[in-house]
């Protein structure tokens, strides 16, 4: 049986999209397979890793467990929408500079969850960062570089000096 497709409209990274999809397809599937936005990764697909995190109306959710239908009429932000034209978001800058992104599979999810954190709390403590990112799993970095990158991005977004320490860049 082929379920009839429905026509869904949502705004992704500021651009209005209309696409037809079957009701059982997840937002993750439609983003990657219909809109070619492959920056959002599919990991466990069961809500156990955070790799597919996107923002829906500004709130981080797991796109593997949201039906595309449920995102209709909403504002979706994926990692492709984080940069401002040619200018990377401070989170992207510092993830790259510090090696907080190694294999990179988890990075999109981490940065989107961190974006929401920094909007709600521009000066988070290490513990608040740890809590906010506790739904995202990284198997490469050991997390410390990720926490440091978020702290530096927060500093830059606050307009403060955000020069990474020598230790953060090169180790001890």
């Amino acid at each position: 049986m082929t379920a009839p497709k429905v026509l869904g409209g949502f705004v992704v990274n500021g651009e209005r999209h209309q696409t037809a999809f079957q009701p059982h397809r997840t937002l993750l599937e439609v983003l990657r397979e219909d809109l070619d936005l492959t920056g959002t990764k599919h990991g466990c697909e069961l809500g156990e890793c955070g790799a597919c995190t996107v923002l829906v109306d500004g709130t981080p959710v797991l796109s593997c467990l949201v039906l595309a239908l449920e995102a209709q009429g909403k504002d979706v932000t994926t990692i492709e929408g984080l940069a401002d034209g040619p200018d990377l978001h401070p989170l992207q800058d510092f993830f790259a500079e510090l090696g907080a992104s190694q294999c990179g599979y988890c990075s999109a999810g981490f940065m989107l969850a961190a974006k929401k954190l920094l909007e709600d709390n521009p000066d988070p403590t290490r513990d608040e960062i740890r809590r906010a990112l506790s739904g995202n799993i990284c198997r490469c970095t050991g997390y410390i570089k990720i926490f440091e990158a978020v702290e530096l991005a927060a500093r830059r977004l606050r307009g403060e000096d955000a020069t990474p320490s020598r230790e953060a860049l090169h180790g001890q």
């Binding site: 049986m1 082929t2 379920a3 079957q22 009701p23 059982h24 397809r25 697909e45 069961l46």
Partner: peptide
């Protein structure tokens, strides 16, 4: 890849 089975969707 784990995909959802097909279903009819209702949104009361």
């Amino acid at each position: 890849m784990l995909r959802l089975p097909r279903f009819t969707y209702h949104r009361p």
